[in-house]
Simulated scan of single mutants.
Amino acid sequence: MYAIKGGKIITMDEAGIIEGGIILIEGALIKLVSQEAEIPDGYTVIEAGGKYITPGFIDSHTHLGLEEEIYRVEGDDVNETSDPITPQLQAVDGINFMDLGFKDALRGGVTRAMAMPGSANILGGQAVFLKTLAENLSGMIYKNPWGLKAALGENPKRVYTAQKKTPQTRMASASLLREALYTAARNLEKTELGAQEEYRQSAIFKVLRREMPLLMHVHRADDILTALRIKDEFNIDLLIQHGTEAVLVADELVKRNVPVFLGPLLVNRAKVEMKEVAFKNARLLAERGVEFSFITDHPVIPIEHLRVSAALSVRAGLDEDLALQAITSRPAKFLGVDGELGSIRAGKWADLVIFDGHPFDFRSSVEYVMVDGKLWRDQIE
């Protein structure tokens, strides 16, 4: 049991900012958040006077544990490029829970991360929602599976043109996705299926039943519109991943209430479809009413710099509170876990970060991180 005493508690909840408050943690949950409270006997007190306390950050699009930074073939399990349609794959089976990126995440205040297959395939496999700290390795799995990864645009074209296989055009990419959804929709009507067919299509069945969303990798405006057409045709839940040119089709996104997992932003223009990447994009989306959260696409941007992307977007005109929402309460909402995470409130999981300064100040460091009530402190050697 822990008691965090003092500090500026940025709750990201109705309570707003509590100056010099008390947070009581019992087991994995927040028991109490208050301006004034007695600390019962038996609690370990963490003195946080003069510090900032935030909810744990959530990075909703990474390849954490799947694409390791210091390895090549040995640590690269992010893309199965033998077939453009592989919905049966599960990212959890490729995760190295000892990946250095998990400790980097903690150093940046990231307590939960979505890890997913890459964007080589039209359907790449199923994502897994992870904790960045747990008592044991299997305990780092928070929710699995969570969403089916899909991709349109340059990446599938580049990969399969090199293999002299389809898809080699945007038309073929969209056609393959439609075909996979259409075939699964027809098979849903059948009373009996072959075991292999049922296994390969089980994740698509969940998308069609709206039991999990399609996590759609798209950068360019025309690819976003294709994704939205397919959403309409099959009446599925869609989450836009990257959305570099999303501002150009903001009205279409707002009309369908489709959010954007925006990023990576702290990058160069690595390919043609990223030519409009800019920190101002977050402000422009906000002005047009599009809901979004920030992502790193780790290891494209190291996961510890999630808050840096948010801070630089504030410098480009984004409201500071909205930027904090975009790495806490908003991804929790989009991922359907806002009843458990994303703000500091009694009854939620104890995912908390204590900074020695404002989290958007580049000079600030993480002093403590808590995930499900488990405390971590960076031991600087």
Results as ranks from 00 to 15, higher is better:
T161R: 07
E340S: 10
L106S: 08
Q35R: 10
G373F: 01
Y142G: 08
N235I: 04
Q168M: 15
L322D: 07
G243R: 01
D251G: 11
N136H: 15
P87C: 07
G357P: 02
S60I: 06
L181F: 13
S343L: 00
V110R: 03
T11F: 14
G27D: 02
K374F: 13
G342W: 11
K348V: 10
A28P: 14
L106K: 11
L208A: 09
D222C: 07
L375F: 03
P40W: 13
L24W: 08
I46D: 11
F205E: 05
Q168T: 15
I344S: 05
F292G: 08
S173R: 03
G65H: 08
S119L: 05
P167M: 01
I18Q: 00
G289Q: 04
H61S: 04
V272R: 11
Q168C: 15
E135I: 11
E38S: 13
A184R: 12
E192L: 14
M12T: 14
V45D: 00
R283Q: 13
K333E: 15
F102W: 04
M12E: 06
Q88T: 03
L100F: 07
G75L: 05
F102N: 13
L352E: 02
V45K: 10
I141L: 02
F57E: 08
I9D: 07
T44A: 12
I9C: 04
A91T: 06
E381Q: 13
V300E: 11
G347D: 12
E192A: 12
K165N: 08
A172G: 01
